[in-house]
Amino acid sequence: MKPAPFDYESPATLDEALALLDRPGACPLAGGQSLIPSLSTRRMRPDLLVDLRRIPNLRGIDADAHSLRIGPLVTFAEAAASSELRSACPLVVEAIRHVGSPAIRNRGTLAGNLVWADPASELPLVAVALRAVLTLRHRDGVREVEAADFFLGAFETAIRPGEIVISIRIPKGATGARAGFAEVSLRRNAPALAAVAVQIEAADGRVRAARIAAGSLQPTPMRLASVEAALEAAEPGTDLPALGALAAGQTIAGLAGQSTAGYAGTVLPALVGRAIASTLAAL
């Protein structure tokens, strides 16, 4: 199938892009790995595509003392190859192993993936787990939105017409942070039926910081705060995967009335245990 008619612009500056994006029916194009198929099936019918590829300074990963900033045109492949991400935010790298195929990872961008907000995709739960902050630019200004507030529903975010993500800021984990990602899908690199993302910083046998979120449980990624708290309170020598699974089970039980959990709810405690176990194995 072929897309419905649309106009295309490839501006050279961010200001120009923001002006174009302010037009009704405008839609930004980054890696295109979700957008282009949706154009072809005519599920999406923007009037204007604003291609961001020529705009300078939208690429690259920068670090300061406290955080890493990922530019909106950084691809999955670039992020996976980043030694800074690998040491300070290893969960990002771990999650990307489950994203698409190499061809998709070569073109797809992290920012685009977050904005698409597919409940079955991996990066949104990583962003929520790691307390990422998204910087959104509009021609009229800038605002920052925490990942937990960014996702509003399936394929639905806090981004407003005319806005684009211009950076994803992720707080750095302590040196030696380790990550685990557990996912069930129909086959390798198919969308997640259930997924859990874990990043742990540990010292002297204690968990100093635990970052845990679950996907597919509800339309938006869910931070498992009670599991994080349980791990952080655990005495040295505790069986952390079992503790995490137990705490996750209690969280699910609390959700039961919402009847949204379904399959993901059934398997979540086990996945939490596995993700924690694989994190510890890496420690």
């Binding site: 198929p37 099936t41 129909l186 086959r187 390798r188 690199n189 198919a190």
Partner: peptide
């Protein structure tokens, strides 16, 4: 509606 929701096995399976 397509290969986004109909999955064929790969060598990994």
């Amino acid at each position: 509606s397509g290969f986004q929701d109909y999955f064929l096995p790969t060598s990994a399976e």
